[in-house]
Each structure stands twice: as C-alpha cells, then as structure tokens.
Simulated scan of single mutants.
Amino acid sequence: MHTPSNKLITKTGKERQSHLEVTEAAELMKFLIGAIPSKSRSDIKSLLAHHQISVGNEVITQYNYPLEIGQQVVVNWTKVLIEKQPEGLNIVFEDLHIIIIEKQAGLLSIATATEKEQTAYSILSEHVKKRDPKNKIFVLHRLDRETSGVMMFAKSEKVQQLLQNAWKEVVLERSYVAVVEGLVTKEQGTITSWLTESKAFIMYSSRTPNAGQKAVTHYQVLQKNKNYSLLEVKLETGRKNQIRVHMKEIGHSVIGDKKYGATKHPIGRLGLHARVLAFKHPITGEDIRYETDIPKEFLNLFSQ
C-alpha cells in the first residue's frame, strides 16, 4: 500500500518525517529503539499502533517486522497514515482538528440543491463516523468539480469558525497550476476585476470598481509552446470560478473549460489543479505546507 507521503511533498518549519536507513538486519522495534533513543519503548509502540511507521511504502504495525539492509524506515511524527484510501480522494493529513485531502477531478466538493451524488464531504463524513457516529466534517472552502488538488476540512465547528473568521491571516499560500489555450506572451501578471454571477450560474468579470466582488489573481508562466501555456496561479481572493473567468478575460481560457470560452479539450478534463496549500494550524499555531505534483497529463502537453 502506498502512503500519503508518496503523493505529496511535505514542507514545514519543523521536520514532520524522519527517514532512517537500515544498515544491518534487525527487527523493527529493536531498530527504532536504537535509531531514535529519545523515544521510550512505549512511545515507539504507540507510533506503530497509530500507523505512523512505514517501510518501503507500506505501513507496518508489527514490532517484530524483519528489516533488511538498505531499506528505509519512515517515521511520520504528526500524521496517522490511512491504510485504505476512500474512493475519489486521498487523505494526506489528519489530526484531531483538520483533514487535508487531494481531490480527484470529477468529484464534487459538496452537494448542491440539485446534485445529491457522492462528494468529498460525504466521503469524509463517512470516514470520520466509522470511528464515532457523532463525528462530523465542516466545510472550509471548495474546489470546482473538474478541478483537482488540495482541500482542507475542519473536524469541529469551533475549528471551522477559527479558520473562516481569520482565513486571510491563516492561509499563507493557495496556488494552482493551470494549462491555458495559446501562447501567453507576458511572463507574469496580475488580473484585478469585479465578479458577478448570472441567473444561469455563469460568472462575469467587470473592470468597473465595486461592480461585484473584487477578485485578484496573480500568474506566472512556467512552460509554453505554440498551443498551450502552463501557469502558476496565486489567488489573493477566493471567488467562485475566479481563475477560469480571469483566464478567459486575458484571452487564454483554461483547457477543457467550455463554460468560459475554451475550444480545446486535449486531456479529457479541466486543466486546473490546486497545487499548494500553506496555512497556520488553528490550534497548534504551526506553519504547515502541502505541495502536490503537477499532474502528468498537464506536463505531457509540453514534452512533445
């Protein structure tokens, strides 16, 4: 089984993982006692019991697991590794207060009045209720159905309120990668406009100050060819469909985004991925940063 650490690169102010090289054959418990002398035998048993030890990409819980020379033991200090991932998403971090997932394209974040199908919210609700039927999940932000990437949910109303009431101060970075149509000649730029929604649920952009909700998007070109450009996009505001509307506004719609002017659909999905989420933990105060890989289907468009 693959651990979440294979899916994401974790970068924080403090080391969240220890990677330990096996230099002689030994049982796992004996190895860990020697490798991390600051921890007691009961501490190490607890790490094993809470699925925080992995060997060769597999979560190991038995203390007498035989290790071979050259293997790597990973200790995940602050996250419980998930043995079986729910369908449609990967849980990449979970503690008592929050859950961070990587959502796949095509999965709704939360049900709407007209759509009652399985969503990231319903999958996670089921996940936490397995431990205690009273457990609940609370929404913090959303990703469009066809957008993949990192999302965070709260596990209590208190944490939800703490995060939502100070979202701008707590969230240190939200950045996306987008594949857009055409060659973007300006290497970087900022788009500022005011967004309003029509009765048909389409967002419209206006340069008239205060004619809607202010939206600010920063972009930088990462790669380009004559057909497409790969952009890093950072949000200063988080409005509905903001990136999609702003890309259309500069004449470079996100690929696969027929709703906002795209004519090309080369990868069978929307070319938008929430790549980085960095924030200050609402309870511990620790700075946490999750960075995912750029989807392969995005990069393949620039490898020919």
Rank of each mutant, 00 (worst) to 15 (best):
T12A: 07
L20P: 14
V22Y: 09
E24D: 05
A25E: 15
A26Q: 10
A35V: 13
S46G: 13
A49V: 03
A49R: 15
Q52C: 07
I53C: 12
I60H: 11
Y65Q: 11
E68N: 12
Q72H: 09
W77H: 15
V80S: 05
N90H: 08
I91V: 15
V92Y: 04
V92H: 00
H97T: 04
L107M: 15
L107S: 07
Q118C: 02
T119S: 09
S122T: 15
I123S: 06
E126R: 09
H127I: 07
D132A: 08
F138C: 05
S148N: 06
K155G: 10
E157F: 14
K158W: 03
K158F: 08
Q161Y: 09
Q164W: 00
V180Y: 04
E181H: 08
T185H: 04
W194E: 02
W194T: 05
K199P: 00
A200W: 00
M203L: 10
Y204A: 04
Y204T: 09
S206C: 06
A215H: 04
A215R: 02
T217Y: 04
L230M: 11
L235D: 05
I243F: 02
H252T: 10
K259Q: 13
F279I: 09
P282H: 08
D287T: 03
I288N: 01
P295M: 08
N300V: 11
